[in-house]
Amino acid sequence: MVFGFHILLLGYLVYISGYVQKWLGILLIISFGSYLLINATHLFFPGYESLKSILC
């Protein structure tokens, strides 16, 4: 989870800085959201891997 919050902080800093384009900061913040969603799914639904093979 530390890596996810690092990406969130980095995305925010890139967004407010004037050196890098803002779309890159937005992309990093979106990647934090997907990283958090994937890890929360593994945390709250530990049997999801077996269900994933049935659904896909």
Rank of each mutant, 00 (worst) to 15 (best):
C56G: 05
I16A: 01
V2T: 09
I54V: 10
I29S: 04
I30V: 12
Y12L: 09
H42E: 15
L55M: 07
F3T: 13
W23A: 11
Y35H: 09
S17I: 03
S34I: 11
K52S: 06
K22M: 05
Y48R: 03
Y35W: 13
L28H: 03
L24P: 02
M1R: 02
M1V: 08
L24W: 11
I26L: 05
Y12F: 13
M1D: 07
L55E: 04
F44V: 11
Y19C: 01
I54E: 08
N39C: 04
L43M: 09
N39G: 08
L10V: 12
S34V: 11
I38N: 05
L55Y: 06
V20G: 00
G18A: 10
L27M: 09
H42I: 14
I54D: 01
L8H: 02
V2W: 07
T41K: 08
I7Y: 02
W23L: 07
S50Y: 04
G33S: 10
V20S: 04
E49C: 00
H6C: 10
G33D: 11
L10R: 02
L36F: 11
G25W: 09
Y19R: 08
S53F: 11
I16V: 05
F5Y: 11
M1K: 07
L36I: 14
G25K: 04
L55H: 02
I30G: 04
L27F: 13
